[in-house]
Write a protein that binds this DNA or RNA. Structure first.
Lengths: 133, 133
DNA sequence: CAGGTAACTTGCATTATGCAAGCGACTGAA
DNA sequence: TTCAGTCGCTTGCATAATGCAAGTTACCTG
């Protein structure tokens, strides 16, 4: 008999942000391929503010979905922007932090922060972003 | 008889980047709501480089789709980042350029440009972005 | 060992993107 | 004065990314 159901493709579930190839050699385009979406820089922001656990990122006011958060952390890990380390407060639990390379994203974050503060009404610096350099 | 096909919803075609409300009062989040996607800042880059016609943006190496380009230009117009003006080279044709507010995005563009150039291999400053301040 | 929490994964509906074709206004050559 | 190009978009439709909610697994904690 051999039913076709056995032939169905494995399908790696959802892809979510796969493409690793560059659209062009432009530094702006390439950087946007990495951080050009609504969530990545917010995760970096939270990391810059000292957050380190999955649940802390979830608690941010924007309300990131857990699958997206998981995906972004994995991508940032791949690209050497963040690294895992054993949490000192809660042993046997891992945490995330910016790598040296990751910290170099702060000027981008800062310029975006400043622009928003100046040109979008209703925004406010509710956090200590300024001091975390 | 009265067939149900007459009852089908009007459906305003495609939405594409609608949400105008802020996810949070964070300046970073709000700015990303505006420019946090793969295309908007590339259009701004092209504008900063002096491009002004629809077809010029299309010709950029990243190959933006016309519907996306159209949508992004409209959004940037709405937000006062770009403005239309009658093209002086080709009369009876309109062109786009950055407004004063739009030009204030350059520091963001610059920080992204610099980061990409330094941390993403294979990128190169193929254009005169540096001089357009 | 029951219940709780942290950190994810999965499914599935909804939105955004990519791609190609179409369309109206204008232009320039025949 | 047609008539074949652009130019600047719009439309349709397939595919990919996101949002939302409900698991799942490992590790506590009482």
């Amino acid at each position: 008999m051999q039913v076709s159901v056995f032939m169905t493709s494995p399908k790696p579930k959802v892809s979510v942000m796969k493409p690793e190839s560059h659209r062009s050699p432009c530094p702006v385009a390439c950087t946007l391929d990495l951080i050009g979406d609504k969530w990545t820089l917010l995760v970096v922001r939270d990391l810059a503010l000292g957050k380190s656990h999955f649940s802390e990122f979830q608690k941010s006011p924007e309300g990131i979905a857990t699958n997206i958060l998981s995906n972004r952390l994995a991508r940032l890990l791949e690209h050497g922007i963040v690294e895992k380390y054993p949490s000192e407060t809660i042993p046997s639990r891992e945490a995330y932090r910016l790598t040296k390379k990751g910290k170099t994203l702060k000027p981008i974050l800062k310029s975006i922060f400043n622009w928003g503060l100046k040109y979008i009404e209703g925004t406010k610096p509710f956090d200590e972003m300024e001091q975390t350099s």
